[in-house]
Design a protein around this nucleic acid. Structure first.
Lengths: 228, 228
DNA sequence: CGCGGCTTTGATGTTCATCAAGTAAAGTGG
DNA sequence: CCACTTTACTTGATGAACATCAAAGCCGCG
């Protein structure tokens, strides 16, 4: 299915699979599969049975769920080397959250039982997983708390800084998500997200060309994120 | 230090330590220590170095952190068999969150290195930890999302139901926390939490005697939690 | 028995959601 | 490739939800 994916060199190996010997890695490699998703495609839906261990090789994904009233709550937007089938994978039968690609993405997929099998035999590997899972969860929780303590302006500023500093590492980037998705991420209304972006624009803090954002005055944006 | 704690019979054994043979359990038992905390006492502070694996034997604790402006954000209030030194323990050097007793509590303490050592040798044990950590984190995240999607009334109703159904399993209970702490938990102002409780009282949904709460009309409270 | 912290309630103002109406952009089918 | 349709974005006006402030009552503790 994929000659181009050579597990020995996979960057992910360092992250979780560093405790595996070459033989295990080879075995893993033989059992894995790569899947590509276009921007907007759903990788899996909440409620579906979990059978695969998935991680993001490239691209960008959002983790979210639907509220009873039908709108989305976005839990996290993350880039490669996070798990995709994350959070509930080692404790639940079924996904608690949906995952969708917000940019073209490649996901590497291994049967979950296979991972569990290795973990049972290899404590160091299991501890690697544990550490990684903890880290991912902690990030989600602390970001949620960070956002919760801020007002509208602070939240929008925070998200812009998140994209700049954590995702893209550039001052100019294309927003991978719609205004509505930002709203669903930070728990505000779409209209107010747009309004705040407009305000930042008027004050010369950012420049906006459709989806493209340029952070002009990083300093002031950081202040807005802090005091807001 | 504690003859009264016989690990072989510890209820916690079922939760995480079920994969250990008697010998390991004995070893664990020899290396553990029990600590008691009075209501209000701090078990550990964010920023402190993590050296112990701690779990709650009895009582009730809150997990929280301080915002830059000085007030508390309560992440979780949980009862026995949750980890206390939770979330960051397997991924960080230092606590990201503080833990304090909201009722008189007993915490069981083992050197973290000791736990790690066992986990490295015993994959099943490590996987048990992983499963437990995942579950705890997932609960925190989903509760946070549940709360986020509700308004003031829904949030207060939700918390009351949480105490009734998840913590105490009775219709009548003593609130273990102040009104302010509820506010810090659900992300609303103290005054409005109190106001909402008063409204519930006036409408005959609950009865209030100081810290003692009685849920009178469970059905309506559930409706308030759902629609709010 | 008096002081300080927690609780309660009312009045006021701010923040934010909602609604509406219009514009731009992006898909869709001929 | 263009007309058409739909979806995303934008802005203003309005009202609701909630925070804040203030003053008073209550309770526990020294």
């Amino acid at each position: 299915m994929d000659k181009d994916c050579i597990c020995e060199n996979c960057e992910f190996r360092e992250v979780v699979f560093s405790f595996l010997d070459d033989e295990s890695v080879q075995h893993l490699c033989d059992n894995k599969e790569q899947q590509s998703f276009r921007k907007g495609e759903i990788i899996h839906n909440e409620g579906e049975r979990i059978t695969y261990f998935k991680y993001l090789k490239s691209g960008l994904i959002k983790l979210y769920r639907k509220t009873p009233s039908g709108d989305e709550q976005i839990v996290s937007i993350t880039k490669p080397f996070e798990f995709v089938s994350n959070i509930s994978i080692f404790s639940e039968e079924r996904y608690k959250y949906s995952v969708a690609a917000v940019e073209d993405s490649v996901v590497c997929v291994v049967k979950l039982d296979f991972i569990k099998e290795i973990a049972l035999k290899n404590g160091a590997f299991a501890m690697g997983l544990l550490s990684k899972v903890s880290k991912v969860n902690e990030k989600i929780i602390s970001q949620t708390l960070d956002i919760r303590q801020k007002n509208l302006i602070g939240r929008v500023a925070y998200i812009l800084l998140y994209f700049t500093n954590e995702i893209y590492n550039t001052q100019v980037f294309d927003l991978p998500v719609s205004r509505k998705e930002i709203a669903d991420y930070i728990g505000m209304s779409t209209a107010n997200v747009i309004r705040t972006l407009s305000d930042f624009k008027k004050e010369g803090i950012i420049r906006v060309f459709g989806k493209t954002i340029e952070i002009v005055d990083m300093r002031r944006l950081e202040i807005m994120a802090k005091i807001g």
